[in-house]
Design a protein around this nucleic acid. Structure first.
Length: 298
DNA sequence: GTTGAGCGTT
């Protein structure tokens, strides 16, 4: 019975994840909760009655029905109020739960040899865990490496391990750190609009709409022309927008950075036609006033 | 073709 895995999913229609069982054939609730934070039990559809059945849980240990887990997909139970929170109240935490708790972020890789390629980086970092993105930053004109890059892992544990040590890559010692540009203000505006930084030119409004749909209803996508490497996406629900803020997301293999959309203030003069002095001081005042006048940013 | 602490064509 050792080295057995059971299939567990958040919902009957979601993709299952394999959770390891113990030597005696039981599964620890903590093993389930490690992948599904907040889980308090498991259920499954009884093939005969077609009814959902609970899995026996004794002191944190889940016991196989009829002493055999079989090939069924088990569904995670959450405490009742959690569930209501997820479905009705807190769209923000729903997004986070869905994506797993320990989200990884891009790591900056400092000190790369000039000759190191993205393939080299991928080969090297794959020895630590699954890699979902690598970049070597290059001079746009010459194509020469700037001597640093970025890497992103699937698992948070991998990320922790990689940050903790130095790396010998193609004959040089390199460091991996969390990049500086991670900050999201503590008191974010409750905007429904997000700023999507580091877009590439081949990302269309349709691409962005398709991608962001998974988090909630998208009401608008705006890509400035000519190309400026960023875009705005507006959601129907501000909680969805806020939940994504500060994240690095992979779109078409490219890591984009999500932050709050700054209020646009190009029409201040129209709002305050008689304000004395230059537009700069007016703009500054507008910025300080945005909490009192939330309706000004649309 | 050069360099060696840094921060990703907002």
């Amino acid at each position: 019975m050792s080295e057995l895995y059971i299939r567990v999913a958040e919902d009957e229609n979601e993709e299952p994840m394999e959770i390891p069982s113990e030597d005696d054939g039981t599964v620890l609730l903590s093993s389930v909760a490690a992948q599904f934070p907040g889980a308090c039990g498991l259920r499954y559809r009884n093939p005969e009655s077609q009814c959902m059945r609970g899995v026996r849980l004794v002191e944190g240990v889940l016991h196989a029905p009829e002493n055999d887990w079989g090939n069924l997909v088990y569904v995670v139970n959450y405490p009742k109020d959690n569930k209501r929170k997820m479905e009705e109240i807190d769209a923000a935490s729903a997004v986070k739960i869905k994506r797993g708790f320990q989200k990884t972020s891009d790591l900056i890789v400092l000190g790369l040899p000039w000759k190191t390629t993205e393939q080299d980086l991928k080969d090297y970092f794959s020895t630590f865990g699954e890699v979902i993105m690598v970049q070597v930053k290059r001079d746009v004109k010459t194509g020469n490496s700037k001597g640093f890059g970025f890497v992103r892992f699937t698992d948070y544990e991998t990320q922790t391990k990689v940050i903790a040590q130095r790396h010998m890559i193609d004959g040089r010692w390199c460091d991996c750190k969390l990049p500086n540009s991670k900050a999201c203000p503590d008191e974010p505006m409750r905007s429904r609009k997000i700023f999507v930084g580091r877009c590439t030119e081949d990302m269309t409004t349709d691409d962005l709409r398709q991608y962001f749909m998974q988090y909630g209803e998208v009401t608008d996508v705006f890509i400035p022309k000519p190309f400026r490497a960023f875009a705005f996406v507006t959601f129907a629900d501000d909680q969805v927008a806020q939940a994504l803020c500060g994240e690095d997301l992979i779109i078409k293999g490219i890591s984009v950075h999500i932050s709050n959309a700054e209020p646009k203030h190009n029409n201040i003069r129209q709002l305050f036609p008689n304000f004395p002095g230059g537009s700069a001081s007016l703009a500054a005042m507008f910025d300080r006033s945005q909490y009192q006048f939330p309706s000004f940013h649309v």
